[in-house]
Design a protein around this nucleic acid. Sequence first.
DNA 1: CAATATACGGAATACTCCTTCCGTTTGTCA
DNA 2: TGACAAACGGAAGGAGTATTCCGTATATTG
Lengths: 232, 232
Amino acid sequence: MAEIAERPVPAGDRVPVEGPVVSERPMRSDARRNRELVLAAAEEVFSEIGVCAPIEEVGRRAGVGVGTVCRHFPTKQLLVEAVLKAMFTALLDDARAALERSDPGPAFRDFYFTLSDFQARHRVLAEQMATAVDMQITAPELKAALHDAMSQLVERAQAAGEVRGDIGPADVAMLFSGLAHATAVAGDVQPALRRRCVAIMLDGLRPTEPSELPGRPLDFAQLDRLKKRAKR
Amino acid sequence: MAEIAERPVPAGDRVPVEGPVVSERPMRSDARRNRELVLAAAEEVFSEIGVCAPIEEVGRRAGVGVGTVCRHFPTKQLLVEAVLKAMFTALLDDARAALERSDPGPAFRDFYFTLSDFQARHRVLAEQMATAVDMQITAPELKAALHDAMSQLVERAQAAGEVRGDIGPADVAMLFSGLAHATAVAGDVQPALRRRCVAIMLDGLRPTEPSELPGRPLDFAQLDRLKKRAKR
DNA sequence: CAATATACGGAATACTCCTTCCGTTTGTCA
DNA sequence: TGACAAACGGAAGGAGTATTCCGTATATTG
């Protein structure tokens, strides 16, 4: 469970739907505009300060009152998820672009360098990616698509002999979510150092002289199943 | 800055010394006992729940009231630091034991497997290691000693040709603090997966076919300097 | 342009958690 | 064993912040 609601969660009776309920009638123009402003501000604020940034700050940055923020996103959780959704979408685009390339090895590696930079720029994503559990509620299909793309990226690189065969997508994900998290916490103190670490991890994934890895490779589905089991 | 004080920090006027002020007269027996109980409970609670676990829970687990917890450790920060200090000490012992060994490569690798397990068991340590800034106040010499031991561990492994020469201690530290953090957040869902990642990272550190790493190797002192500069 | 449903701002509310305070209990020492 | 300083427990105090509420302002529509 992500640590978003670090404060009370009175949980109103309001239906916790993301935007306007269904689409009874189009939102008023100012409402539509404000919604976008808030979303943009939230992305900015969360990326700078972290998820625990006060909602008021988001409102200030967007030039609206807290009330407005909370009307559009009845819960902080929902606001975070909306931001996450936008970012995951961007990420998915990146991954798909990497899949278009004809050089699977470099494409794979470039993707992870880019991912790391991206995460360094966006604390929210980095903070949440390590656990990335919330999306399951809001946008499972997005998460699934991303997992799918990332898995393919690994598999192609493996098929091309550019990544050792005894690893699974889950290994890669864990490796990078760790780095992302460290980055988020430490505030990307030294981008150069971070990139070195990416390079080192990628080297660890190369096929030459692999050590005998403990355990067996996992894909995302297996990982999810294990996570769920662990929760009980 | 570690995220310990996620709540108000009224900061009493009380002198923020760790235990009893100096040693005017020996603590009463019950006080001494309770202090130990609290420390043990804190280690347990923080490791299970994380640093943001309420102080009251620590008290409950120790079988004492909040008042008692706060008398012994006037500030939550101080309590966390006391726990950290104990754990860093244990870690230092491990590192020194590793330095005794005559097989620098395996000693280096074993140490990091052990470290990872240790961090997985103790969220506090994992959470703090990524930033590891607080010790600077309480026990700078401990931190320095640990850094020293870890640096030596790397250097010996390098001298023995078991670790590539183009990395620095800071690389290793960042690599592992990331994994630790991910582990802490996800609650060590899959220990096997974590160990695989340790193995992969260690492979990345092996000397065979190193890719050209970006940037230059850093040691802890340089890293510290950079962190400080970043803070301004 | 008037009428009205929507949306707005921000004060009030609610809740958690750290810290302090104080009346009560307990170890210590003669 | 009695006196008293030290320590205890837990209630009160204080702070920060998510969420709700409501009087006011503003798009929209005819």
